[in-house]
């Protein structure tokens, strides 16, 4: 149940435990040395620095964390976790937050990035492998951004960096079963 304000779900405690269960990380051990933010190559593009996302969780501002751009900008490069004195797996926390946000239909902070992930997964479901040219084209249509990177696309095609035809898995049923088992 989505509400206004900072309290979004029927049970806030439930969100905290969901993050901990899914990520297998106890975010309460973070003492905000900010090493993660110092090392993060993408911090300038985030609305909250990585440690600030943890602070939001510690203080119970779940909606802010789930709606943030940070959870989508984070690419999971593990630079932050490598310097964390408490060995907090930030990438796992971000994975958990993204998935909780999607399951609770929270407004996505960076819809274009979700759009990209969705196209990648669609491609894997169709072929068992990623077909980059089709992912790019479908992504462009999805975001109605047809013309940016056109010159780059042509350059990549002429350098044969983008295959016209997908490389496919033979036992595509096995791939479908993996996607299906997820919905069970």
């Amino acid at each position: 149940m989505v509400q206004n304000g900072n309290k979004i779900l029927e049970s806030d405690r439930d969100i905290a435990s969901q993050v901990i269960n899914r990520s297998n990380v106890n975010f309460n051990s973070c003492y905000h040395c900010r090493c993660c933010a110092g090392g993060c190559p993408f911090v300038k593009a985030m609305d909250y620095a990585p440690h600030a996302i943890i602070r939001l969780l510690q203080l119970g501002f779940y909606e802010k964390a789930l709606k943030s751009s940070t959870i989508w900008i984070c690419v999971g490069c593990n630079t932050c976790s490598s310097v964390c004195p408490m060995s907090i797996d930030m990438s796992a926390i971000m994975d958990a937050l993204r998935q909780i946000a999607l399951e609770h239909n929270i407004k996505v902070g960076q819809p274009s990035i979700l759009g990209f992930h969705t196209e990648v997964l669609n491609s894997i479901e169709r072929y068992g492998r990623t077909h980059k040219l089709e992912i790019m084209m479908r992504y462009k249509v999805r975001t109605m951004d047809l013309f940016s990177d056109m010159d780059l696309g042509i350059k990549m095609l002429t350098k044969r960096k983008l295959d016209l035809m997908p490389s496919k898995v033979k036992d595509i049923q096995a791939i479908k079963n993996i996607f299906k088992s997820d919905q069970d």
Partner: peptide
């Protein structure tokens, strides 16, 4: 072989 799932799978769907 099939795609390892890349960054996108674990980002939005850990089970897959």
């Amino acid at each position: 072989w099939n795609c390892c799932g890349s960054s996108s799978a674990h980002s939005i769907d850990s089970k897959t």
